[in-house]
Nucleic acid binder design. Structure first.
Lengths: 110, 110
DNA sequence: TTAATCACTTACAAACCAGTCAGTTACAAA
DNA sequence: TTTGTAACTGACTGGTTTGTAAGTGATTAA
């Protein structure tokens, strides 16, 4: 057990971190949802209009997952018709700069 | 058609960039493969040992896809037993710093 | 002679992801 | 009275991803 780091080797902790990171960014719609919430709180219906290709079911399912992960916060108002707002949590805000940068990866492959 | 940018809106170009970026980083194994090739060329068998949970079939399939995407380069030597090496392409090297940072997203969710 | 190494390929099955479509609640407008 | 709106839910289905298991060919080591 020496103290020398072997930076090229992926260790158990890295595996966990990567797995968690992939949960947040992977999937056909997650990044789109997050980027649309980058700057402001939005209602569910607003997100539907902004990402028209996603189905209702999947959008709700993904929003739920992102809330569970702790990237988003959800606020329901007792109104009729209902109003539900989604916004970034503190964690979500913390990772936003990186998420915005991910788009730049694509630039190398167009 | 005014010239004012609305930075909060995701436009067609963003969609394309994001889609391309997701091709590179998404999937259960892609990032692992890329990170193991971050610093050095490696043989196929070496990657198998470094990522023991991935099946042979999927590893080869993912390597093939990454070569096709232009992130990796493959070199086969006419030897017996065969020797095949994988390394980052120039594009791959260009996006590496960002890929390494992605792990840090996970740190917020452990 | 048998087993092992290396980089694959193929057939098949299970798991996961995403999509359609119909239905729900409560009110408001036509 | 019918229609519309908002935010969902659940059944069902097709498609993609991932996994399992077996086999290939050339060569060396035991």
């Amino acid at each position: 057990m020496n103290g020398i780091k072997q930076p090229e080797l992926i260790v158990e902790e890295d595996r966990l971190l990567l797995k968690k990171a992939l949960e947040v960014i992977c999937g056909k719609w997650r990044l789109f949802i997050l980027l649309h919430l980058a700057d402001k709180t939005r209602r569910y219906s607003e997100l539907r209009r902004l990402i028209p290709d996603v189905s209702e079911k999947v959008l709700i399912q993904e929003l739920k997952a992102l809330v569970l992960l702790g990237v988003l916060e959800k606020q329901s108002f007792n109104e009729v018709p209902p109003r539900v707002e989604y916004r970034l949590s503190d964690r979500g805000k913390a990772v936003m700069p990186l998420l915005l940068q991910i788009k730049e990866i694509g630039r190398h492959f167009i």
